[in-house]
Amino acid sequence: MIFKRIAVFTILFSVVISAAKAQNDPKAKAILDGVSKKYKSFSAIKSDFSYVLDNPQENIKSYKQSGMILASPKTNKFHLTIYSGSGATKSVEQEIISDGKTQWTYEKKDNEVQINDADNSSQSLNPAQVFTIYEKGYKYLFTGEVRQQGQVYQQIDLTPVDSKKPFFKVRLLISKAQNRIYSASIYDKNGSRYTYILSSPATNYTGSDSVFGFNKKNYPGAEVVDLR
């Protein structure tokens, strides 16, 4: 369920894509370029987030979770932590780690780690790419400003040039005052909507790169299943 579970935070040349660029909105591009420039100045990006799933087919409405993301858009690496509970009862439910080549998924309830090849295909989405999502293969359009909880956000809709992608739209809300991504909503072709809200401003992570790799010592007793 997370990032579909992960197929949601490539996004981010063919003649088709080059032609599509002429249809892009200059105002949207100016906003996105500013955001992208900010994030690209970071060594890596760290942020808390909340996740909301709406899936009418499975009668799921506003299913919520929280988590923390570390992402390196330049290297396609990420470390995603999903929590259950809140406050004093909050604990790690799932971790998804990728060094750009290999992906490790830890499920606490099963005390199991699954190893897969990282999916870097054009059909996938991953958390590292949400910060530069528009740069390849998307048309984008500024659709106005919205106000939520006293804040003004610039709304931009992205549509993939490739019709084979499993989603048809990504809607970004960008803080006008802080020039940062506030939320990204992915609209799936099956009717589901996945919304990721960056609940804290993304900061520059300058810690060890080892956070983007798997260390079995951190998961005592866990069964490791290699599915490659």
Results as ranks from 00 to 15, higher is better:
Pro73Met: 03
Ser36Cys: 14
Pro26Cys: 04
Ser14Cys: 09
Asp48Lys: 15
Lys90Tyr: 03
Asn55His: 12
Tyr39Leu: 10
Lys38Arg: 15
Glu93Cys: 00
Pro73Asn: 03
Ala44Asp: 03
Tyr51Leu: 06
Tyr83Gln: 00
Tyr83Ser: 01
Ser47Val: 06
Tyr39Val: 09
Phe42Gln: 00
Pro56Thr: 14
Pro26Gln: 04
Glu93Ala: 03
Tyr63Ser: 14
Gly34Pro: 15
Ala19Leu: 15
Gly67Tyr: 02
Ala71Lys: 10
Lys38Trp: 02
Glu93His: 05
Glu58Ser: 13
Ala71Asp: 07
Ser36Val: 00
Ser50Gly: 03
Gly67Lys: 02
Lys46Asn: 11
Ala88Met: 13
Ile11Gln: 11
Ile17Thr: 12
Asp25Trp: 08
Lys21His: 13
Gly67Phe: 01
Ala20Met: 05
Asn55Gly: 03
Leu32Arg: 01
Thr89Met: 10
Phe78Leu: 08
Ser18Val: 12
Pro26Phe: 12
Val16Gly: 00
Asp54Met: 08
Ala30Glu: 13
Phe9Met: 15
Asn59Ser: 10
Ser50Phe: 09
Asn24Ala: 08
Leu80Gln: 03
Tyr63Cys: 07
Lys29Cys: 02
Ile45Thr: 00
Ala20Trp: 02
Leu70Gly: 13
Phe78Asp: 06
Phe9Arg: 07
Asp33Thr: 00
Leu80His: 10
Lys21Gly: 11
Tyr39Gln: 04
Phe78Trp: 09
Ser66Met: 05
Ala28Thr: 01
His79Gly: 09
Asp25Gln: 07
Val52Lys: 14
Leu70Ile: 05
Pro26Gly: 15
Gly85Val: 11
Gln57Ser: 05
Lys29Trp: 06
Phe42Glu: 11
Ser66Thr: 04
Ser18Pro: 03
Ile11Leu: 12
Tyr51Asn: 01
Glu93Phe: 04
Gln57Trp: 01
Lys27Ala: 14
Ser84Arg: 09
Thr81Gly: 07
Thr75Glu: 15
Ala19Asp: 01
Val8Gly: 02
Ser36Trp: 02
Asp54Gly: 07
Ile17Val: 10
Ser43Cys: 10
Ile69Ser: 09
Ile17Gln: 04
Thr10His: 05
Glu58Phe: 15
Ser84Ile: 01
Pro26Glu: 08
Val35Arg: 01
Asn59Arg: 13
Tyr51Asp: 02
Ser84Phe: 06
Phe13Ile: 02
Lys37Tyr: 12
Leu53Ser: 11
Gln65His: 01
Lys21Gln: 14
Ala22Asp: 10
Ile60Phe: 00
Glu58Val: 06
Ser43Trp: 04
Ile45Cys: 00
Phe78Ile: 03
Gln65Asn: 05
Phe49Ser: 05
Val16His: 14
Leu70Trp: 12
Ile45Ser: 04
Ile17Leu: 03
Phe13Met: 02
Ser43Phe: 03
Glu93Tyr: 02
Ile82Met: 06
Ile82His: 11
Thr10Leu: 06
Ser72Leu: 06
Val15Trp: 09
Lys40Leu: 12
Ala28Gln: 07
Phe49Met: 07
Val52Leu: 07
Lys74Trp: 04
Lys27Thr: 08
Ser14Asn: 08
Gly87Cys: 09
Ala20Asp: 00
Lys77Ser: 08
Ser62Cys: 01
Leu70Pro: 11
Val35Trp: 02
Gly34Ser: 02
Leu80Ala: 14
Lys77Thr: 04
Ala28Ser: 06
Asn24Leu: 12
Thr89Tyr: 12
Lys46Leu: 09
Ile17His: 00
Lys38Ser: 13
Ile11Phe: 12
Ala22Ile: 02
Gly87Phe: 10
